[in-house]
Computed example of a mutant assay.
Amino acid sequence: MELHRETDADTWEVEALLDTCFAPGRTALSSYRLREDVAPARELCLVARGTAGEVAGAIRFWPVRVGAQDAMLLGPIAVHPTRQGEGLGAFLLQSGLDRAAVGGVERVLLVGDAPYYGRFGFRRLANVTMPPPTNPDRVLGIWDWAGVTGQVVRAKPR
């Protein structure tokens, strides 16, 4: 497995992977409204390629704001169905978080299942609100969320 930063050249393959892994209406989710016209944090976005060069998995991060604070919205994270169960999702997640920590990111949030993401240190963010119709129990964060409250909004458009 080869892991590298996502580049513009990877975009169409990563989008194809996301189409394979998620429902056709994935772009209608509220988290996608936060990504519109905002460039991803390319230094944190990763692509895993198999030995034949195929995209086996990918993870993306997007800048957002919560109240007056900057944060990174993690997602989507996807693993090709033929590679699921190999630990690649956990590897991508931990690798992305490691890069974020080294890069000085203070807080990361995502929308996901607490039992899965809790093992990486994510916890429910009771005072942070994603755009509807997001289930508040699925809004999770890691690192410095002390005193951070409010609605998650898009970072400045590119």
Rank of each mutant, 00 (worst) to 15 (best):
T7M: 09
V79Q: 10
A39W: 06
G141P: 03
L18R: 15
V47L: 10
E106M: 10
V111E: 05
A41S: 14
L109T: 02
W62G: 00
L88R: 06
W143K: 02
R65D: 08
L3E: 01
T129N: 05
N127I: 00
G103T: 06
D19I: 12
L29E: 11
V47K: 06
E2P: 00
V153Y: 00
E43D: 11
V47I: 15
E36L: 12
V108H: 11
T11N: 12
K156D: 13
A90Q: 12
A41E: 13
W12P: 05
S95W: 05
E54V: 02
R107S: 09
F122K: 05
H4N: 12
A100M: 08
S31I: 14
V38K: 06
I59C: 11
H4K: 15
W145D: 04
L73E: 08
G150N: 11
G53Q: 11
R35M: 15
L18I: 14
D70T: 13
D10V: 07
E106G: 13
G87T: 13
R65H: 14
P136Q: 00
E106W: 02
A48P: 03
H80D: 13
L29Q: 10
T82L: 14
T20Q: 15
Y32L: 03
P133R: 09
A126W: 10
Q84K: 09
W143V: 06
V14F: 13
R154Y: 01
I77H: 00
A56F: 07
V111N: 01
A155G: 09
R65Y: 08
V47P: 02
G104C: 10
N127L: 13
L110Q: 01
M130I: 01
A23D: 12
T11M: 07
S31V: 15
A126H: 10
L110C: 01
F91Y: 12
P63W: 04
V153T: 15
R35L: 09
L109K: 00
R49E: 12
G121T: 05
G104S: 13
S95V: 10
L17E: 01
